[in-house]
């Protein structure tokens, strides 16, 4: 673990008796694609919340990003430091166009001037394969896949070190998932470390180099994706005890 870019140390989040995340520790190596899986309610999105500070940080534990403790930082500072994240929700800013969304991302997160932000918009929209003709319409009128493209593009505006994606494949058709697969590999190849929460197992197995499975707020298994999904405990957690 020499080149650990992000480190979660014994992080917990408790809500009035409910342990949503309970003593989770893991490291993310620079340049990898790390998959995070787990049944509904296992604490995957809460874990992302703790790391990015949106809408809350951890109750206890430490989060380190590029050697700095970030678990008490305000959300915008974490974002500006180079940790980008997308949500499950489909349109981030329903009334802003793709161009406007990226301009806000570029000028705030990326701290770019207007001209530089526009140039960067062209780059990231090209990278995610967003159709030029759709750039001027309000995001709520975009297709599901276009919204995902825009979400990933906005995450990339600031040239983040780490991109955290929360179920990007949800609601996509099979060909769209295949496009997303290629897109995420391309993003990763451009030097961005990727953390991927996903229910679509084929995507996780296809692109992630390591897989963590959460269950009831704790890490259940961690390691090579193909091996992790064969783990008895993992199968039990997913299928509720039935034999496969």
């Amino acid at each position: 673990m020499n080149d650990t870019i992000l480190e979660v140390v014994d992080a917990s989040k408790h809500f009035a008796g409910l342990k949503a995340v309970n003593g989770v520790s893991f490291g993310v190596t620079r340049g990898e694609i790390l998959g995070i899986a787990g049944p509904n309610g296992s604490g995957k999105s809460t874990l992302f919340n703790l790391i990015t500070g949106v809408p809350f940080g951890p109750t206890s534990g430490e989060i380190r990003f590029q050697g700095q403790r970030i678990d008490r930082w305000p959300a915008h500072r974490i974002a500006r430091a180079g940790l980008a994240r997308t949500f499950q929700k489909d349109a981030e800013f329903p009334d802003l166009t793709a161009d406007e969304t990226l301009l806000v991302c570029g000028t705030y997160n990326g701290r770019l001037g207007r001209a530089a932000a526009l140039t960067r918009s062209d780059e990231v929209l090209g990278l995610v394969g967003f159709t030029d003709a759709r750039r001027g319409i309000p995001s709520r009128n975009l297709s599901v896949y276009e919204k995902k493209q825009l979400m990933i593009a906005s995450g990339l505006m600031s040239r983040p070190a780490v991109l955290m994606l929360d179920e990007p494949a949800s609601g996509l058709t099979k060909p769209e998932i295949e496009s997303l697969d290629r897109l995420l590999v391309a993003v990763n190849a451009s030097g961005v470390t990727v953390l991927l929460i996903e229910h679509v197992l084929s995507l996780l197995l296809s692109i992630s180099q390591r897989l963590i499975v959460l269950n009831q707020g704790s890490v259940l298994a961690e390691g090579n994706p193909a091996e992790v999904v064969r783990n008895e405990e993992v199968i039990t957690a997913y299928l509720g005890g039935r034999k496969q």
């Binding site: 959300a75 974002a79 949500f87 806000v104 990326g110 505006m157």
Partner: peptide, 8 residues
């Protein structure tokens, strides 16, 4: 939330 994430 998303606004905070894009650095606002």
């Amino acid at each position: 939330d998303s606004a905070a994430l894009i650095g606002v």
